[in-house]
Design a protein around this nucleic acid. Structure first.
Lengths: 346, 346
DNA sequence: CGATCAATTGCATTCGAAGTCAAAGATAGT
DNA sequence: ACTATCTTTGACTTCGAATGCAATTGATCG
């Protein structure tokens, strides 16, 4: 038995509150703290006997290594930040990311932005928590991106791309996707007049989708195109229909929506308020391929983003860059999958 | 900008890798590390002059206190765990929680469970990260709950209640909500035969909703009730209709769904596959009050959970218990808000 | 101008795990 | 048996911020 008197440590009464530490385990097992630590390190040099001895005490005391303390010394928190501007539009993305990271022993600290304005506050929090990396589905200025670089925090953008700045990102090809939707529309002679329902002006994605649509329409010789703006929400889809009619005095042959949610609003407004038939009277297309797009009520023509591939790519690109800081920026572009649905008349 | 003569920075190569620490700031400002630390502690004793001096260096060096190191010494990580069994059904809850915690300087470490079986793995991770508390929207065994108590980690359940165990929880009154939906149905003479579409068997919430419905129906003298089971998803709603018809040989007057998502599936199956009219031929009710319930395509009769109040309650109950470990368990029960919608015929 | 007391400031220690290094133990070769 | 080599092990230090305590400064008053 070890001498009880020798240790002037923080003994008994504290133990009712404090957590079990590696020292407690060491003492219980009659070994050194280093030994305990080594038992939790994969490739460490520990004899079979020692490991059993330690693990017995670990079990008995219910010891779990303190990730905070470990993070301090190893400079690896095994925490990444996930920043989303509005969770509502990315629920499955966030959960996919969380699961995939968890499979690799990494955890997700979630940051949601209601107004993109509090990004700077959020960034400060991110620095404080010494995250190993970040996945960002929000717009950052190039100054903000530069801070990540300066702090040496790997960064992967999800569905945001920057022409001018060198960043790592995973994207769905917005332009190509939008073009193939328009192709579908242009296959029918009946589509001569169009309206484009964009997302919020500061959304780069919306801009790309809109641009893809406009370009393709122009190439197709279409000139009758009305543009209205929404905010990616259902209600703004409904309003967009009213706005369109107000602007052009009539309903166009097809409405091209920057995302599915607005497309649902558009369809509902057309069908239930204006009592028009979709696709009989008007065609509608969306973008994203959210679950509801395949519900019979909508069966929307849209581009389905390959969320699994994209999140997997984002996770592995980030982890690769955490393990090796020297990897160069890389952009990965996935093609969306065309869903024909039944909202386009032929 | 600044002239080169004054440069003589000692930092150079160090700054490329390591983070700025309070020692760096102290050295730069010519004060002690303690002083820097105190400048970041709200009620601390620091002279105005000192604060300015330090803050100038902080700005210049871009210092941010290391939350990991702070957490180690203060035993307060300012991180809480949020555990959800399937994010898909709780997107707005998670984002609400995250925002509300952020407002109080607390951050959310997200844990998602695909199979509720990996709870024990998740719990271990939670202990390792020394979270200050946890919000759990998943089923825990009473042994698992006991560990929280033993480790002195405050725990708040979201929409899970336990009859036998003393826990803190926030709930929507499932039974009352379901009863008021049934009341609505029973106001019409036309509703004589019913089907109840439950959620997965291990869901306590589903059980409560189902029970509420069954009890109220029995009280109303209704005996013709078919029960089928789904998994809370859209598709299972569609299948539930088929199952119901198979079991009873005909379509019931009303289908009572344990959540909105299944109700959408039910409605789509009725309308588009069976070409029945809702509510003309069949009435449908759901539960939850998700956004899509108010879309014109569905305009579903349902009970809207007061998500804002519930998340606010969960957050403040948890934080109260983090600040004061002696607070007793408390259950808060919110009433849902009845949405009449137009899926019930009168 | 000096004494008294309060407000600041710095020193040294602490949190818990991991890594360094040298000592101790085990194994093998001759 | 004895050294050379490899494996295990423990003492000690480190990560970065917070804090008790002592030292110092400053303010106040007679």
């Amino acid at each position: 038995m070890a001498k009880a008197g020798t240790s002037t440590r923080k003994e008994n009464f504290a133990s009712t509150k404090r957590h079990v530490t590696s020292y407690d385990v060491a003492q219980h097992a009659g070994v050194s703290q280093s030994a305990v630590s080594r038992c939790f390190k994969p490739g460490a040099s520990v004899s079979k006997k020692m490991r059993e001895l330690v693990m017995a005490s670990v079990e008995e005391l219910g010891y779990q290594p303190n990730a905070i303390a470990r993070g301090l010394i190893t400079r690896r928190s095994n925490i990444v930040a996930v920043v989303v501007s509005n969770l509502h539009f990315y629920p499955e993305v966030v959960s996919e990311l969380s699961e995939r990271f968890a499979d690799r022993g990494v955890h997700v600290l979630l940051f949601t932005l209601d107004h993109e304005s509090d990004i700077s506050r959020t960034l400060n929090q991110i620095w404080q928590y010494q995250v190993d990396g970040a996945i960002v589905a929000a717009n950052l200025s190039s100054e903000e991106i530069a801070i990540f670089e300066k702090r040496d925090v790997p960064l992967v953008f999800y569905n945001r791309s920057y022409e001018d700045v060198q960043v790592t990102s995973v994207n769905c090809d917005q332009v190509e996707g939008e073009r193939s939707l328009i192709n579908l529309l242009l296959q029918s002679e009946g589509h001569r007049s169009f309206a484009i329902v964009s997302g919020p002006p500061d959304s780069i994605i919306s801009m790309q989708r809109t641009r893809g649509a406009l370009d393709r329409l122009r190439e197709g010789g279409i000139t009758d195109v009305t543009q209205v703006t929404g905010d990616y929400g259902y209600k703004s889809g409904r309003r967009a229909v009213q706005d369109t009619i107000e602007i052009r005095g009539s309903v166009p042959d097809a409405l091209i929506c920057a995302n599915d949610m607005m497309a649902f609003g558009v369809m509902d407004e057309l069908r239930f308020h204006l009592e028009l038939d979709v696709p009989g009277d008007v065609s509608v297309v969306g973008f994203d391929g959210v679950r509801a797009a395949s519900w019979s009520s909508f069966d929307l023509a849209t581009i389905a983003q390959p969320v699994e591939s994209m999140t997997e790519a984002a996770v592995s690109m980030l982890i690769d860059r955490i393990d090796n800081r020297d990897l160069p920026p890389e952009k990965r572009l996935f093609s969306g999958v065309l869903r024909r649905g039944s909202t386009i008349r032929n």
